[in-house]
Design a protein around this nucleic acid. Structure first.
Lengths: 386, 386
DNA sequence: AATGTTTGCGCAAACGTTTGCGATAGATAT
DNA sequence: ATATCTATCGCAAACGTTTGCGCAAACATT
């Protein structure tokens, strides 16, 4: 190994090895009392190309104009301290140099990123993606970006997403919980950070946060009452997993039964995850009941459509024999035959309301505790007409 | 107005007004040659609460441990320069102080934000949202966040979104163009910034960028040939607006006709925007043709479903009288009666492939020019069975 | 001419990281 | 004991902004 040469005094004697530093051999020149390592020759080149590739900064403009960075900043931000003349000059120079502010740096100093975080169970069902559409729409109107994380109906993913988003990435959070989320410590831990949070659609009463409710109890009541008015007496109710506030749909169902003097029958109420097999199994059990059921109210349109197809395969007339109702008003309910009676929860409006409520908090800088219910509307179609 | 008091010498005489600065009256004390303004009394309080509200930083940990910031940083990043002992101590202290790195600051110095940008025409149709799901899935696996902008099929919005995203917010961009995007200067302007871009689904040959194609031409060919094999001879083709590469579906259609010796008939090819009225109008025109058409091939499943319902309203038998095909394999095609023959373009796979291709470029730090085609699959259902 | 006021700009700190290099106390080799 | 090496840490610059304050020159008022 050739002896190292000191970059200062250029001698090769009296050079000592001085440990390995950052994976590079280090030397020490006794003459000039100088530590050094052998530089990669690519370094200088790298430095040059780096400079050239960088987007123009305030500094570049300042240098080009021969003024200070602060003046450039103020000029571009229309600060009154800067004369009209220099302001115009600088603006012109900035556009000619294709300047665009570095949002990261701005966010760092302003402590605001102009973006909202969304945690949502799923992106691919229209039910959720239309909420997302509403959020996006409102956010964009106020100049906010949207960072989306999908929890995939997985609680641990929700926790991880929350963690990731809350580290200075976002000015506010919109969250719609997983079906299986029943502990909320991960949210509680974030509630003192000063970043407003709004729960939407699937909310938890355990958390003192503003919420956007869908009109579930009333909707379920209306659907059930509609079935009763159509003469149904044994109305089966298909619910999702036992979780969160969604199950106040059960309350609406029970309330309608009560008001019309129909006794609750535990056999007619089933909880399932939303898998196809579980849905079909539940329906088949009901079909074996005596006396026969005359209606199925599914908490989800998707399941309701599956049920309709299943019943048709079994040559069971809808609504002649059994009426079927869904919940949510997805597009498929309009396509299936017979068309599905359902309850429109106005998912897009929910998203919009959530985003609005969040933005209010961000802009006014105070945490509200207001909660909003989005009214829905029953949609009566063929699957319950007799 | 009471005279101002100099905060240094505490006198009230010899105080001069000295202009308005930052919207506050400014004073000058002749005695101590000192400029000052009347401070809002809330300032100190604000300063305190601010400090308390802030998340813990490296500085806080360093102060608590009595060491330097750099040591803390290196310890938490497992840098070998730090002894195991201090490293463990610092890590423990960090978790006990609930430290989480400020991603903005990291991004600023590392010049990387660990997030991908997506520009997509629409969030609310399953067709696009499932692509988005694929993107999200792959990005999350590599620890990347996703920032989503929806262009709403509006060219100007696409341009604005692009501008906003490319200012240091993202490490790479996935873009699916608007139906009406036919100039691409806004993209060209961003191509030299060193941020990799991948086009997906709706791509433009005008841009020298890696692309993810769907198997459109082949798909249209297969659908058309399938119709011909079923005995159809007058096959109407419903296309979207004249734009981008999507229209090589037209090529597939024409190729199939050619191969089977069927002459092209201009009357059978119509371009429409995807509005309901335009679709129905096109179909009605076709229905008046002589000799009668025996098939309709719609470029979009959504329109195909509308067409089926329209034909059924007119008591036209499907496929007995007219066969109907769609393109895309949306869920509604399975629900509608008769079930829709269509072509599965595997939207989710397209999203995944796009994200993978982008991530490769980001991680390898070199811009590729590879393009990928995602194979689709024809799905034959009732709407073409005779 | 003297004094008071305003305008227009620059300096430097701050935001929270990462990292090249300097520095020193102890370990090891001679 | 001395010369050499190593391990471990701190200093300070850098990333690109915003902003409180200082200050000189220009302007306005006596």
């Amino acid at each position: 190994m050739p002896r190292a040469k000191c970059p200062k005094c250029q001698i090769t004697e009296r050079i000592l090895k001085s440990g390995i530093i950052r994976d590079k051999q280090r030397f020490y020149c006794k003459d000039c009392n100088y530590h050094f390592t052998l530089l990669h020759d690519g370094k200088k080149q790298k430095n040059e190309t780096k400079k050239n590739n960088r987007p123009t900064s305030l500094k570049d403009i300042a240098q080009a104009a021969g003024i200070s960075i602060s003046t450039v900043s103020r000029a571009l931000n229309n600060h009154p301290d800067i004369s009209l003349e220099t302001r115009n000059n600088i603006k012109q120079l900035a556009t000619s140099m294709d300047y665009h502010p570095n949002i990261l740096a701005q966010s760092l100093v302003n402590r605001s990123t102009q973006s909202l975080g969304v945690i949502i169970p799923n992106l691919e069902t229209t039910f959720f993606s239309s909420m997302l559409g509403g959020i996006q729409h409102i956010a964009a109107k106020s100049g906010y970006r949207v960072v989306i994380c999908q929890s995939d109906e997985n609680h641990m993913t929700e926790v991880a997403n929350l963690q990731a988003l809350m580290n200075n990435m976002i000015d506010g959070l919109l969250i719609c919980h997983t079906l299986y989320t029943n502990t909320f410590d991960h949210v509680k831990m974030q509630m003192n950070k000063g970043i407003p949070i709004v729960q939407f659609y699937r909310v938890s009463e355990e958390l003192k946060l503003p919420k956007i409710y869908s009109d579930d109890e009333n909707g379920a009541f209306q659907i059930t009452e509609h079935l009763i008015n159509k003469g149904c007496k044994k109305i089966a109710l298909l619910l999702g997993p036992k979780a969160i506030s969604i199950n106040n749909r059960l309350n609406g169902y029970l309330k309608a039964l009560r008001m019309h003097g129909i006794n609750k029958d535990e056999n007619l109420i089933k909880h399932v995850d939303f898998s196809y097999n579980a849905v079909i199994a539940a329906v088949d059990e009901w079909l074996n009941l005596e006396p026969e059921i005359d209606a199925i109210f599914s908490i989800s349109d998707k399941c309701a459509v599956q049920i309709i197809r299943h019943l048709k395969n079994k040559n069971i007339k809808i609504p002649g024999h059994i009426s079927v109702c869904g919940f949510g008003n997805e597009y498929t309910g309009e396509i299936v035959e017979p068309q599905l009676t359902t309850f429109d929860v106005r998912t897009r409006l929910i998203g919009e309301a959530a985003a609005k409520l969040l933005l209010e908090q961000i802009i006014d800088k105070k945490t509200k505790n207001e909660s909003i219910m989005i009214d829905g509307k029953i949609i009566i179609r063929e699957s319950t007409r007799k």
